[in-house]
Design a binder for these strands. Sequence first.
DNA 1: GATGAATGAGGCTTCATTCAT
DNA 2: GATGAATGAAGCCTCATTCAT
Lengths: 201, 201, 201, 201
Amino acid sequence: MSMRADARRNRDQILAAARKIYLAEGFTVPMDEIARAAGVGVGTLYRRFPDRDALLRGLAIDAIQQVTALGEIAWQEERDAWSALRRFVHEGSELNRVVAAVRPHLIDAVPDDEELFQAGVAWFELLSRMVVAAQEAGDMRGDVAPGDVLLMLNLLTRPLAGLPAELGAGLPDRFSDVMFDGLRADSPTPLSGAPITRWWA
Amino acid sequence: MSMRADARRNRDQILAAARKIYLAEGFTVPMDEIARAAGVGVGTLYRRFPDRDALLRGLAIDAIQQVTALGEIAWQEERDAWSALRRFVHEGSELNRVVAAVRPHLIDAVPDDEELFQAGVAWFELLSRMVVAAQEAGDMRGDVAPGDVLLMLNLLTRPLAGLPAELGAGLPDRFSDVMFDGLRADSPTPLSGAPITRWWA
Amino acid sequence: MSMRADARRNRDQILAAARKIYLAEGFTVPMDEIARAAGVGVGTLYRRFPDRDALLRGLAIDAIQQVTALGEIAWQEERDAWSALRRFVHEGSELNRVVAAVRPHLIDAVPDDEELFQAGVAWFELLSRMVVAAQEAGDMRGDVAPGDVLLMLNLLTRPLAGLPAELGAGLPDRFSDVMFDGLRADSPTPLSGAPITRWWA
Amino acid sequence: MSMRADARRNRDQILAAARKIYLAEGFTVPMDEIARAAGVGVGTLYRRFPDRDALLRGLAIDAIQQVTALGEIAWQEERDAWSALRRFVHEGSELNRVVAAVRPHLIDAVPDDEELFQAGVAWFELLSRMVVAAQEAGDMRGDVAPGDVLLMLNLLTRPLAGLPAELGAGLPDRFSDVMFDGLRADSPTPLSGAPITRWWA
DNA sequence: GATGAATGAGGCTTCATTCAT
DNA sequence: GATGAATGAAGCCTCATTCAT
């Protein structure tokens, strides 16, 4: 049973508006404001997303699936894992900002949320494949696990309030460049703690 | 004009309770809960900190000053800048979590807040001295500026909800180790964007 | 101007569903739920009954007319008024529950609502005929008026939440039996207040 | 830890206002209106009664305890159970209206609510003592149980919307007089169904 | 005509802040 | 001063009603 055309359009408008506003102003914006930005009434917002969390959830699933799709393409088109990984991170920077911003608000619900969990699993498996391949090719140091990469990416992509927009937008790329240099195989500093192997806990 | 002893004690209890609760539960905790955790009434809380922002501000100034003090010690005791920087980051990890968590809520007010601004300036100057010295000593790559280091630290120290406590606590150290490896002088990857030279914008 | 067959069918489905749901869950059920139970869309519901009150009104008129019809039969088939009255109360128990439940929501509108008023008048006149005849036959005490009987019946038929269904269903009969015993002519206790002679106020 | 004087006063004002408004306009009145009628802000209302149900609960417990107290007095002062019962019903008429009106909204929660349950138990035990004694004295028919009396009273005391106030206020007395006549020992009509022995189900 | 999506007023509740005790 | 009760603006959400498909 697919949605009516106008319903689908509304849903997309809402997700787009929510993404934009949340990134710009944080997660405290009232639902009414999101509805207004999407050009719909609150009622419509609530019809599509039964409550605040459902909206975040929709946002997250959407972004995770898109970022995964980007990654699959990079994985197929690049010759080596290291390049695919960097390209994936670079191209998914904008989407990753969404995921990073949403994470703290959703993470506790993940284990109980089939759809969200599956989206995350697919994403994490792709990332894992890349990381392992890069390590086997000798391009990435061996003492990190995919979870380390995921979490560092998550942190480095978080919004930094107070920066001029054109500066802030470029930082995830800049900082992940530094991170990648730190992940290269010839880096010797031994890491404290244990490699992170799971994405959700 | 110094405070009476009990007033000072109240103030410290409140700041300690607020720090603990904010780190554990995020910034949505009601003022009542903080007052209760501090063992005082809301009235007293509001006498010390006229509103919510003032409390955050107190928290931030407190933490920044402490982290600066730690850094000064490291700077004087370590023989080279690189070691001082690493020690400083390592030892200030807990305090940095506070600063990182508070940043998004205060950053816009910084330019108008003399005391907060000054604390930040002192901190940033110390960090800058270390970074520049490390670069001059050939230990750190030259295409980053102190602001890059500060912001990356800020991001890498942010709380990661959903992780088991004992895992989460160790991550800032682990991730800053990777970052430091990425900052070492022999890293070749050219960075996109421009070096960040200011701490507040 | 008679309705088309399908329109009539819709109308009846809606009334049946509404009666059932209202009795089971009270009058707080949303219109959507009634529409769903009736197997139609809300739009159709609103086409038949322009607003919530119109639906209640339909329900009430329907039930009052049916209960009156039952009463007429009893009145013709039973040899004495007292028996007719008891049979009428007994057989109309289910319908009376509807009328009793609806009363508080409609009563204020009755004087302005021709159709509802007429249905009520017919019902009340029938009841009055029975009461007066029973009194004249010496079966019913003389210090009550038809309005007393009507209101007591209304009250004793109201839903009693929290009871097991099979218990609750039998109570109107049980309790009206007690009431009839109290209404028998040889009861001596003088009543406080005045006999009630009108049905709607 | 007893309440501050003003807090206690507020609590009482709220209960009084709620009782009055609920009886006059039903349970759909907004919380704001009750607060206004009590001369306090909504916040105060919510501080005393955490949500709508808590207010109803407070109302019910209050009324039940008062009605029980009245009954105890009647029980001690009257020479026979039958007189005590009638006096009790007569004097508690106003309070019973509250209990009757509240019942449908609370009954499902009773088994899980210690305080409410206890109040109800005390009330029911008193009523039971009276009923049993009246039956043993030969004043009340033997085929009813205390639960029958309680439920009939509950029903006969319910508000009848649409009646002029001075008429409506007298009806519970008038109708319970009829009921008492129906309950007298010499009434022969056998009742359908089984005696009701519990008050809450 | 039927359907169900869209609308937004209005109810419930929370919590930052003020103020009486 | 300290306390915690009171206040009410503002956010979340529901649902009666309207309207596009």
